[in-house]
Amino acid sequence: MNSLPSRVFETAVNELAKLPGIGRKTALRMALHLLKSRKEDAEAFGMAIIRMHNDIRYCRECGNISDDELCSICGSPKRDKSIVCVVEDIRDVIAIENTGQFNGVYHVLGGIISPMEGIGPDELNIEGLIEKVNSGSLTEIILALPTTIEGDTTNFYIYKKLHSSAIPVTMIARGISIGDELEHTDEVTLGRSIVNRTPYESIIQKKNQ
């Protein structure tokens, strides 16, 4: 597979192979498929990608992708603007939206603090969050960052920055997956779940809500 019969074709394969999760063989298959498809279809495919880059905007409030100045979540009158859920990136917004359990709005950081990768607080959208808090209209900040040490550290940084404002800061619960047997849960998670157990009464009340 070292040399392909056409330079143009090879460029297309190389570009496809840059996509996450796509190896060279899959890229070759995709390129052949696109080459064989109708010209209009291939053009629509290319245009969609070009338009995505030219036309997509980022929501002024939360940093989510959007067609307008405000994204559909921030722009919706049904959402509770006083509860803000802090997430690492747009994929997390989509994941939480899919649960259908959250009616507040989001704040996308665009990453987490990791000096190794050269990402400090200044590279992230933390100032925007502080401004929101200082505006005084919020009642709760929910931290929903990854459960890695970098995620924990970012949580801690945000918490320290918001501490003086006296706004309640919560963190999403971590523990045993729904439907899992205890014996198959890894020891660290199970141990943490025991330490951070929750009052049963609060669970019944939430179910009845």
């Binding site: 000096p115 400090g120 607080p121 970012t154 801690f156 940084y157």
Partner: peptide, 11 residues
């Protein structure tokens, strides 16, 4: 920036 160092110190 001492705030950036402190978060790692704490951990």
């Amino acid at each position: 920036d001492s705030a950036q160092l402190e978060i790692w110190d704490e951990q």
